[in-house]
Design a protein around this nucleic acid. Structure first.
Lengths: 153, 153
DNA sequence: TGGGATTATATGGGCGTCAATGGGTATATG
DNA sequence: CATATACCCATTGACGCCCATATAATCCCA
């Protein structure tokens, strides 16, 4: 499986380390399995993460913008300077930077939510609540949900 | 990772030295890891920097402007004549020229902001404010920032 | 097929290494 | 000769690597 799926609740130890769920590690390309990128989610108080490969895609896109435009700087600043790379140790653990932990309200435990091509890290309770909320929103529009699930390709 | 990513806040010591963040040093080609170039940003009161190899890329971008336009001369002059090269010592530190420090309002501390293929050096508070401002501008066009981050392939 | 054995995962902790920083001294350069 | 700058060494704290353990999952063979 090459997608981030399911959810996991892991602990942060005294040194600040937390295990990246094993199934998530397996999604990362064997080449760069010891490095991930993290950034603040745009739409929620959670952290989003993925493998470094994705970053190169983003870099390419930004590079195609007009170098002398204001947009270029805005994108470049908001993305490159806000993204952090983190090393995953041999045991599959990594450190969540303090600033990101603050942003997401994470203290001693964190929840990983698979999102397909990326994943989110939440303060456990907030994460569960978010899942409920989004499911509730979806069910209000059952029709569109059914369409999304059944309409293949 | 071969991109300048994330942000770092380092101190300037009595001798005027400041550490280039370790992850930034690793972006520089092993051959010229002890030399960087610095110049005043055209668009903000910050210093921009990169490895010497990037000069060619800058030249190309300027060359792509209309040769007979006023912009061409302005950019060409503003950038090329203002570029300075600086040596990075064995411990990874370098000196920011006085004129550039003045331009950016830097005194005892500086913030490094990754910008992909180059980086910016800011007076810490101004740098943080700039990040907020540019993010605010982008969030007005939420869709485009999300596309930049999530678009596949 | 059941139950013991092997493997994997999450977690804990010791310790060496590296990054950021400080300072002394040599060297260069005008 | 005076000032600036590079090299060398030292310190501190953070982080990566190694080893260890407990629990869970898987295997495997009688």
């Amino acid at each position: 499986m090459d997608l981030f799926i399911s959810k996991y609740f892991n602990k942060i130890d005294k040194k600040g380390r937390i295990s990246l769920p094993s199934s998530f590690r397996n999604v990362l390309p064997k080449a760069n399995r010891n490095e991930i990128i993290l950034y603040k989610s745009i739409k929620s108080s959670s952290i989003e993460g993925c493998g470094v490969g994705r970053l190169k895609e983003i870099a390419k896109r930004i590079n195609n913008l007009d170098f002398f435009s204001e947009d270029y700087d805005d994108f470049s600043t908001s993305i490159f300077s806000e993204i952090v790379t983190t090393n995953v140790d041999k045991e599959g653990r990594f450190l969540i930077p303090e600033e990101l932990k603050l942003y997401a309200g994470i203290k001693t435990e964190a929840a990983f939510f698979g999102q397909g091509h990326f994943f989110q890290i939440w303060e456990p309770k907030q994460g569960l609540k978010n899942t409920e909320d989004s499911r509730r929103r979806l069910l209000k529009e059952k029709k569109s949900l059914r369409m999304m699930l059944t309409q293949q390709k």
